[in-house]
Amino acid sequence: MSARRTFTRPARLAAIAPYLWMVLFFLVPFGFVLKISLSQTAIAQPPYLPVFDLAAGAGAIKAAFAALSLDNFRLLVSDDLYVLSYLRSLVVAAVSTSVLLLIGYPVAYGMARLPRRWQSVTMMLVIVPFWTSFLIRIYAWINILQHDGLLNQVLLALHLVSAPVVWLSTDSAMYLGIVYSYLPFMILPLYATLAKMEPALLEAAADLGASPRTAFWQVTFPLSLPGVGAGALLCFIPIVGEFVIPDLLAGSSSMMIGQTLWLEFFTNKDWPVASAAAVVLLVLLLAPLVLYDRLQRRQLEGAR
């Protein structure tokens, strides 16, 4: 078997270029984030100190190391602004993910029960919005939700409200935008597990006297849990760091950490604090990321 010519070795060689690329442009940059999170803010270009200067020799590098400090992290834990941002991000992500599950599950379940040829059509219909721009979809909602937008017009015409309701710059608008944008990410993994399920299992449950409802909760739902996990992580992790949606749809009274980081970086030009905020965010997301990596590997590579 091993003497046979196989594809394995050349396939491994194929890894070289993407491997180097990802190390350089994905892994190494985290090192810079960490380093700058330990630096001090400076009014300079780039706006932080110390700047490593390899040409200046070992003494200078030693001095640079000595100047590293945890001040930015101290700031993060002592300032309510940051602590509240992190808390808000986690809460928003948890609530949105639950709502997404509640909406996405019935849709995915409906898809999985369609006749085969319709399944691929609806699958396509769910994927297409994922291909259209995030920004466009949020903008579409601003159109609808604004003061004299379509929603208020419809509500006024139906005499459901007597004056236009403020929808924009509220938490409800933000939740709506998040659920809308992430729905395909929730539906697809759920559908993937539900469609794979053996229909004979439900028939067996029915033959053994289970009502459809019991069969669902005893058979279908437990078997779909990997899909639930994948969908939840696929939504939860990026929502925690979401910037565009809260920025455009939520009010300015409280911010998610993605907005805080953006503000520190672009408005306050405080790169060290922004980097420290990114490091803490990454640490918060480490456990879900590892879990997600496991699920993804199991799904794509059939690993245990």
Binding site: I237, P238, G258, A274, D293
Partner: peptide, 17 residues
């Protein structure tokens, strides 16, 4: 490294790059 960017918040990826 290949799976993480699929879910990594874009603010982190953007800042680090």
């Amino acid at each position: 490294m290949l799976y993480a960017p699929l879910v990594m918040p874009e603010v982190i990826t953007g800042l680090s790059l």
